[in-house]
Structures are given as structure tokens and as C-alpha cells.
Nucleic acid binder design. Structure first.
Lengths: 189, 189
DNA sequence: ACCTGAACACCGTTCAAGT
DNA sequence: ACCTGAACACCGTTCAAGT
């Protein structure tokens, strides 16, 4: 006698994501997720392998959404301009999903880490803009420089590491402008 | 009848740090720390407030050591050269203490976050080099640009986010060289 | 085929009782 | 003054039993 599913993997991931964003990673318990979707904790194991797997699914979901935001931000045809809109879209996304963003590039157990393809896909728009600006030989190194800066800045901002006062928005724009010029190939001013 | 202390806060922090580096944050349990220093878990609460406090003490310890490594790396009198040795020392330290480093700028509960003075002290050497290179007006923004880049690069490298192959060491040197030029004031080539 | 209660091993933390 | 066992509330996870 089959029993009808009272919940679904999508519902579990969506609920887990909301709880993660509201209560942080420590607050993301199987019992809380189960209660939100209307089952008991053991039932969750019919839909996800374990808690680490649930974290992975949530982060994949977030990364796909980030990718869409980045894709929408780029595409002006002007790589210099694209790099700016990409960096600002990146920062805006992180600020509206701070808990999830903080885990996106964190050291997590293997089972919780984001899928490689999802990760690669998220970096594409920026890699394209960097390639157009820096030329093919330096494309990857240039993309890594910009990504590292943007991620590092956002991560430190989210962690509250900028404690010396000053204008953080201005520091972001300063870094963005200097970096854009710095990675441009000599013949691409 | 007073009972002699069978352990100390320093021993607990040192043991906790070793366990953190070996087993990760999830592996850092009060029971394991207690066993290593030779007492039972409840005794630890005579020396630290709770587990979050222990994490804070460990991270403070790591940050102080990082500060010493950075201070030792700088001081050549040549800000351009200092920036390079600082960035490389930063990366080397992170690679030898990956678990602790990954938490240094992570989103942690308030009670686990590093002390503001320890954080400010760690940034001093880099702020000094950046100021010498960028000039007083842009000193803070320039220091934040370099710190963000270095931290972001190292954090992504530790998290295994550079999955497109390529030469990661070369990307680090590329970013370092371009960034150094980018933050230099026009009159400080 | 999914859901459940019961159970297990493990946490962090408190506290009264020991020395 | 510190250490301990016992206890409590809470985890994640497994599993046999229900429908």
C-alpha cells in the first residue's frame, strides 16, 4: 500500500534555505525543517541523504540564483562597464542572502560542497568580461584576481571585519576602478 | 579545601587549536578537548565561558600569530617590496593553518568572533605599506583593496573554488603585481 | 512508497556533591 | 577552588512497524 508523499525535496530545500537565512547554519536542524514542511525528522531521509546533503542542495540553489543575477547584470558589450555591473550585482546579492553567501566559498565537509558545474557556471559571466579586457593569455588569472577581490571584500564586509570606519562603499568603488584598469591589457585602455 | 588546577586556559586553547586544525570545527567538541588536557568536560567551564568562547580564544591566538608573521615579513623600507612579502607571508600562513584561517573572517556567532583590537593589529603592517604606496587620502581604501584580494584569493583557494585548472601560483603573482601598480599613487610609480 | 515512534550515540551545559 | 558524575535538553540518524 503506497503512501502518498506529504512533502518533496524542493519543499525541503526551500524551507531549509529560509531557516538557514533566518537562524544561521547552527539553526538549520532537521527537526525544524521537518516541522516546517509538516513531517517528522526521519521522513526527511527519504528525500535527502543527510543534513550535509541538504546544505549542499541549498547552496546549489543559491548559486544558481546568483548566476542568474550575474548573467542579467552583464551583456552591455562593454567589458569595462560589465565588470562594474557584475561586481555590484555580486555584492548586492550577497548582502540580501548573507548567511547563504557566507557558506558559498566556505570550508565545508565534502558532502556539503557545491557541485563543480554549478560553480563553474557561476563564474562564466565574469570570466567572459575579464577575457575581453585582459586578452586570452591573462583571461583566467585576471578573472581570478577580480573574483578574489570581490569575494574577499564582500566576505570581510559580511563578517564585520572593516572596523576602522571610513566609507566602505567608496572603498568598493575605489577597488573596482583600480582593478579594472589593472587587469586591462596595454592595448585595451 | 581548595583543589589544585589540573589544567589551564592556555592548555585548553592550545589543545583546542590542535583539534580544530586536525578535525575541523565540527570535530572540536568539549569532550575531546577535555580528554586531551586530562579532565572531564564540565571542568572546562571553570576556564572558558562556553564552546563559542573557546573558539574565540583559539582564533585570537591564531590572529596574534598571523600578526607576528606579517610584522616579520614587512619592514624593508620599500613599500612595493613589502606588499609582496606581506601577501606571500599571508598566503603561506593560511596554507599551514587552513581550518583556523577559514574561520578568521567567517560569519560566526557574536561570542566566537575575534576581538576588534586583535583584528586591527593584524591589519597594521599592510595598512602601513598601502599608505606609503597610495598616499594618505587613499590609504584605507587601498589597504582594503589589497586585503580583500589576498583574503578572497586564499579563501577561494582553501575552499577548492579554483577548479578550472591553470596555474594558481601564477594567478596569485599576476594579481599581486597588477594590484600593487593599481593602488600606487601617480607620483609613486 | 512514504511516514512514524522508538531507540541509539552523541552533543553542550548545569549543578550538587566531593576533595 | 577546581573537579566530578549525574542529569537535562537537544542533536543526527537508523530501523522496524504502520498505512
Amino acid at each position: 500500500m503506497p503512501a502518498p508523499a506529504r512533502t518533496s525535496r524542493d519543499a525541503i530545500v526551500a524551507s531549509g534555505r529560509a531557516i538557514l537565512e533566518r537562524d544561521g547554519l547552527d539553526g538549520l536542524t532537521m527537526q525544524r525543517v521537518a516541522a516546517t514542511v509538516g513531517v517528522r525528522a526521519p521522513s526527511l531521509y527519504k528525500h535527502v541523504r543527510d543534513r550535509g546533503d541538504l546544505v549542499r542542495l541549498i547552496l546549489n540553489d543559491v548559486a544558481v540564483e546568483l548566476t542568474a543575477a550575474l548573467d542579467a547584470a552583464a551583456g552591455s558589450g562593454e567589458p569595462r562597464r560589465d565588470l562594474g555591473t557584475l561586481a555590484r550585482a555580486f555584492r548586492r546579492f550577497a548582502m540580501t542572502h548573507p548567511e547563504a553567501y557566507g557558506l558559498l566559498f566556505a570550508r565545508l565537509p565534502d558532502g556539503s560542497r557545491i557541485d563543480p558545474e554549478v560553480n563553474a557556471r557561476a563564474g562564466e559571466a565574469l570570466l567572459r568580461a575579464a577575457a575581453a579586457l585582459a586578452g586570452p593569455d591573462d583571461a583566467l588569472a585576471a578573472a581570478r584576481t577580480v573574483t578574489a577581490w570581490a569575494h574577499g571584500f564582500i566576505n570581510m564586509e559580511l563578517a564585520g571585519a572593516f572596523r576602522l570606519g571610513g566609507d566602505v562603499d567608496r572603498a568598493f568603488e575605489f577597488g573596482l576602478e583600480r582593478l579594472t584598469s589593472a587587469i586591462a591589457a596595454p592595448d585595451r585602455p
